[in-house]
Design a protein around this nucleic acid. Structure first.
Lengths: 240, 240
DNA sequence: TAAATGAGAGAGAACGTTCTCTCTTTTTTG
DNA sequence: CAAAAAAGAGAGAACGTTCTCTCTCATTTA
C-alpha cells in the first residue's frame, strides 16, 4: 500500500536529522510536506463526500470529484490509488463517527438515561447536517450509501463489521454494568436487545426525522419509552 | 400480476376486426401476443432483480441483465425503453409489496396485536428469501437499494412517496379506530407514532434479523413491547 | 406474405485510470 | 551563495474498457 518509499532516503535520514523539510520518512509524517499532503487528502475526501451524497458511490464519477475538489485527475491520483480507496476511507470514517457516540454511554450511571441520550445524540449528529451546504439529510444519504455498498463490497463490509464489533462491545459493557445494578430484566436476551436497538437506531437515522419536521426534543420520550420496553419488558407488559 | 387470459381470444378478435389487426391497443392487452409480452417482461424483471441484488442498481449493467435473462439487448429493449424504467418498475413493485402487508392490520380488532403481526409479517416476507436461489438477505439488499436510489432519483422518490402515503393512510385508519376503542393513550402524537413505527420497521428489515440467526418467533415479544411502549407511553413509564 | 420478434454487432459517450509534460520547490554541488 | 540537479505537485490529453442504447438483418408466427 505504501508504495513510493525511496531507498535513498534511508541514508538521508541518518545524516541530516536537523532538517525536517526534506522528503525523508520523518518529514513525511511531521514536516511541511506531510501537512500539505494531509490537507490535500482532506480536500479530496470532502469533495468526494459532497459528490457521493449528490450522486451515490457508483453514480459519482472521478471527474465529478476532481471538479468538486478543483483538481486534475493526475493530481488526485497522487493521493488515492483508486476510487475504491476513497469509498473505503469515507465509509470507515462514517462508521467510526457513529461508534464513537457510544463512548458517552459508559459514563452514565443509569442505563435508560444512557440509551435515551445516545439515541438523541445519534440523531443530532447523523441527521442534522450542520456543517457546510448541501441537503439537510446529507448524513442519512451517506449512511444508506455505506450500508448498500457494504452488502456487495467486501472491503466496505469488513469496515462495517469492524466498527459494528466495537459498538457491540461498548453496548455489552454498559449492559453488563446495568444488569449488576438491577436495571435490566434478567429475562432479557442480550443479543436480541443489542440487535433491536441497532436496527431501530439505523432506521431512525435513515428516516432522518429532523429533516421531516420532527424536532430532536420530541424524540426524548419516545426513546425513553423504547428503552423501557426493551430493557424491562416484564414491567411494561404486566399492566397491559 | 395474475392474468388468466384465453389464448384464442386474440385470433378471434383479430379475425373479426380486420382493421386493427396486430398492434392495436386492445390486442396488446388481451391477446396471445399480449400474454407473451407480459411473460417476457416478467422474465426481464426477474433477471434484473437478480442482477440488482447481486450488483446494485448502478453496478449491474444491461449486458449483465441480458445474460441473466438469456436475451439480447435488441430483444430486451423491445420491452423496456431504458434501464431507468426497469429500476422504477422494480422499485414500485417492491414498495407496493411492503404496503400491502398493512392491509391485514385493518382486520384485527386489537391494535397491539395488529402492529405485532404486521411487524412479524413484514420481517417474514421481506427478510426471508424463500423463493429461488441467491443470498438469504436478497430482499433486504433490494430494499436498501431502493431507499438509496430514492434519495437522489426523482422518479424513484415519487414512487416511494406514493406508497408511503398509502401506508400512512392505512396506519392512521387503524389508529383512529383503536383510539376510539381507547387502546391508545390520548397524549400520543400520531405523526410521531407513525414515523417511529416506520423507522423501526425499516431498520429491522435492513438489518435482516433472520439471516443473522434471530428467529422470527423471538421477535414477537419485542414487537409487542415496542407497540405497548409507543401506544401507551404513560402506562409504560408510570411504573418506572 | 406481412407483421412480430430476436440476435448480435457496434455506435457513441462516459468510465476509471495512466501517461507525459510543465512548473515550482528543495537539495546538492562548486 | 549561486548554479545545477533532483524531486514533488499538478494539469490535461489520452488510454483501454465498459456503459447504455440503436441499428440491421435474419427468423418465427399467424
Amino acid at each position: 500500500m505504501v508504495d513510493h518509499v525511496l531507498p535513498k532516503q534511508a541514508a538521508n535520514f541518518a545524516d541530516d536529522d536537523a532538517d525536517d523539510t526534506s522528503h525523508c520518512f520523518v518529514a513525511k509524517l511531521f514536516g511541511k510536506r506531510a501537512r500539505n499532503r494531509e490537507a490535500q487528502e482532506e480536500r479530496i475526501l470532502n469533495a468526494a463526500i459532497t459528490c457521493f451524497i449528490r450522486s451515490g458511490f457508483r453514480g459519482a464519477s472521478m471527474n465529478e470529484i476532481c471538479s468538486e475538489a478543483g483538481m486534475s485527475p493526475g493530481a488526485l491520483y497522487r493521493y488515492f490509488p483508486s476510487k475504491e480507496a476513497i469509498i473505503e476511507k469515507i465509509s470507515a470514517a462514517h462508521r467510526q463517527q457513529s461508534a464513537e457516540i457510544l463512548d458517552r454511554m459508559l459514563k452514565s450511571d443509569n442505563i435508560i438515561d444512557a440509551i435515551t441520550q445516545v439515541g438523541i445524540d445519534h440523531v443530532r449528529q447523523m441527521s442534522l447536517n450542520t456543517t457546510g451546504p448541501g441537503p439537510r439529510d446529507s448524513n442519512a444519504r451517506l449512511f444508506v450509501e455505506v450500508r448498500a455498498e457494504s452488502m456487495r463490497n467486501e472491503g466496505v463490509a469488513a469496515i462495517c463489521e469492524l466498527h459494528e464489533g466495537l459498538m457491540r462491545e461498548k453496548l455489552f459493557a454498559a449492559f453488563d454494568a446495568a444488569k449488576e445494578r438491577g436495571e435490566i430484566d434478567p429475562i432479557v436476551d442480550m443479543e436480541l436487545l443489542v440487535a433491536t436497538l441497532a436496527a431501530m437506531g439505523e432506521g431512525i437515522i435513515m428516516r432522518n426525522f429532523p429533516s421531516q419536521g420532527v424536532p430532536v426534543e420530541a424524540l426524548e420520550p419516545v426513546f425513553r419509552a423504547l428503552a423501557e420496553a426493551t430493557l424491562r419488558p416484564t414491567k411494561s407488559l404486566e399492566n397491559k
